[in-house]
Every structure is written in C-alpha cells, then in structure tokens.
C-alpha cells in the first residue's frame, strides 16, 4: 500500500475567466499534517474540493490513498472525511440525528451509529446540545459538529478547510489539540489556513499557494528561515530602561540587528529561534529590568507573501 496518502500533480481548475488553480502539486505522507497556506481567493477551497471528489479538475490528477479522485471517486469517498469551509450539517436535524444519519449512510449498524455519535458528541463537548436542532448552535459548536460529522467513519485522510477561522483563541487551541489527536491515532490531515501561526503549530510541511500556484513548499522551520523568523517584542516597565533593553535585544537578535520601536514604549527585534526568548529573559533579569510585556510573533501572512513574492498585497483583500 502506498505511503503517500494525498498526491496531486498539476491540478488546474478554471471558473469562467477565473483561474482558480494553475498547476498545483501536493504530496502528503501517511500520518502527517500538511498545511496549505494562502490568502483569500488563493485556491485553497478549490484544491480541497477537487481532492475530496466534489469538483473535477480541468487538468492534472490527484490520488488519495492511491485511488484516483476522478476514476475511483467512490473508493476515495470511503477513505476521506471532509470539513468544508462552511458548515455542512443539516440545520433542522439535531446534532445527534446528524451524526447517526452519517453513520448509517456509512453502513454502520444502527447501534454502532448511535454509539459512534455519542462518542463523538462527548469528545467535542456537544453532549448537552446533542438533542437540539443544529440551527440553534453557536458558530463554534457548529464547527465542532461539522468536524465530528467528518470523523464518523474514522477516515484515513481528513480535509479541514480553514478549521479555526472564526473561533476564539481557546477554541482554536482545542481544535489544534483535536488535529494532533487525529494524527496520533494514525490519520493523515490536510488543512488550509490563512494563519502562518496555525500552520506552524500543526503542520509537518507547508505549501504556500497564491493565485492558484504553489509559491513555496517546505517544513515550517525552513519556511520561517526564508521569511525571516520571528519577532521578539518587549515593553520595559520603566521607559528609562528603554536604552538598556535595546542593547540586550540587539545581542539576541538575528545578525545582532539593533532594536526598533514598533509601538510607543515597545522595542522589537527579529530573532531566529525560540532560544532568543529564554536568552533575553535571563539577560533582562540580570540587568534588573522589569518588563510588562514580552512576546514572540510569527510574521503575518502579509509579510510571508511580501517575502516570497516581493509584492506587497496579493489581492488587496486578505486579512
């Protein structure tokens, strides 16, 4: 059996004049998380829909677990779970009815379908709301139900299209935990996101796409190296310490770059690894400088694109 679970070569898809995909290649080994990173309109959803057999590519081919998404669509469908960008559960049915329905459609016996539904409702913290129609759910609950729905059949390959867009930070953290559990249990996950931070937190490998083309494909570490790593920001409690703080930051910065004032009273330097954080904390403590704010930031998607494409904005509408 193949060990590349998701494989795409030269995927092309046009919608009238719009060229949504212009030759996208992807390869996701078994048991890994692959992040597809791109701004609005990059073609992420289109790629996911082709890989999950909802759309036919105009050119190119794709295989899931070795099965062609066009010729062996039915076999592909029995191996995948899809959580689309927008909720795809029945709003009039309760959470439980939705999950039982999908279980029986996957040929589970009634008792097994019910059992599976209960298990998933518990896992996703929906037991209390289980018997309410899904249309009464909050955005976050719907998102979780949707993900639960795609896991009913214990799929080998899971597609998550922007799984955390619109979730608050703690729910986002929960969702990440779910993804990690899925992979630990042997699934292969392909997720799309607009946040480098998310791709970095989860993915073993990241493909950056823009205007339907792959513009980078690397491990998060490599990618960060290319785009210049992280930024360390510090706000000393006493503005009189700014100068001393600046010197300490420069000493841990990439290429000893001098610190810049990014906001009033906040100094920032580019750093190339997490060690810089511990290092600076230690030195600030030795120097007796009290800080009220200290944080590490990944470059935003905008900055990533700027670095990778040399253009400031790809479409004028991404966050």
């Amino acid at each position: 059996m193949t060990d590349v679970m998701v494989e795409a070569e030269g995927l092309v898809k046009r919608f009238g004049e719009t060229r949504a995909l212009q030759g996208v290649d992807l390869a996701v080994p078994r048991g890994t998380v692959h992040g597809v990173l791109g701004p609005n309109g990059a073609g992420k959803t289109t790629a996911v829909r082709i890989l999950s057999t909802l759309l036919r590519p105009d050119a190119g081919q794709a295989r899931i677990a070795g099965f062609d998404v066009v010729r062996d669509a039915e076999k592909v469908r029995s191996r995948i779970g899809l959580t689309g960008q927008y909720a795809s559960v029945d709003e009039d049915l309760t959470g439980r009815q939705n999950l039982v329905l999908f279980g029986t459609l996957l040929d589970l016996r009634k008792s097994a379908a019910k059992h599976r539904a209960k298990e998933l409702l518990e896992w996703f913290d929906l037991t209390e709301a289980a018997d309410r129609p899904a249309k009464t759910y909050s955005g976050g609950m719907r998102r979780r139900l949707d993900l639960a729905a795609s896991l009913v059949g214990r799929p080998d390959v899971i597609f998550l299209d922007e799984p955390t867009t619109g979730l608050d930070p703690s729910k986002r953290e929960d969702m990440w935990q779910v993804v990690r559990t899925l992979v630990r249990d042997g699934s292969t996950v392909l997720l799309t996101t607009q946040y480098l931070e998310e791709a970095e937190a989860l993915a073993d490998e990241i493909t950056v796409i823009d205007h339907g083309r792959v513009i980078a494909n690397d491990t998060p570490e490599q990618l960060k190296r290319i785009v210049g790593g992280q930024t360390l920001e510090v706000r000393p409690a006493d503005p009189a310490d700014l100068e001393k703080t600046g010197l300490i930051l420069a000493s841990v910065a990439t290429n000893q770059k001098p610190a810049e004032m990014t906001r009033k009273g906040v100094l920032a330097v580019p750093v190339s690894g997490d060690e810089a954080l511990t290092e600076s904390v230690a030195r600030l403590a030795t120097a007796g400088i009290v800080v009220t704010e200290l944080s590490m930031h990944l470059p935003s998607l905008d900055e990533v694109f700027f670095t990778l494409t040399g253009r400031k904005d790809t479409e004028g509408n991404h966050k």
């Binding site: 909802l54 689309g84 795809s88 559960v89 709003e91 459609l105 996957l106």
Partner: peptide, 17 residues
C-alpha cells in the same frame, strides 16, 4: 446551495440517494 449536499457528495453513497 447548502453545505449538507456537499457532505452527501463526499460520502460513499449513490449520488441518487
């Protein structure tokens, strides 16, 4: 237009069901 039909299409069931 609703997502539920996407879900049906991604399941290994007959399109006509």
């Amino acid at each position: 237009e609703k997502g539920i039909f996407d879900r049906f299409r991604s399941l290994p069931i007959a399109r006509s069901a």
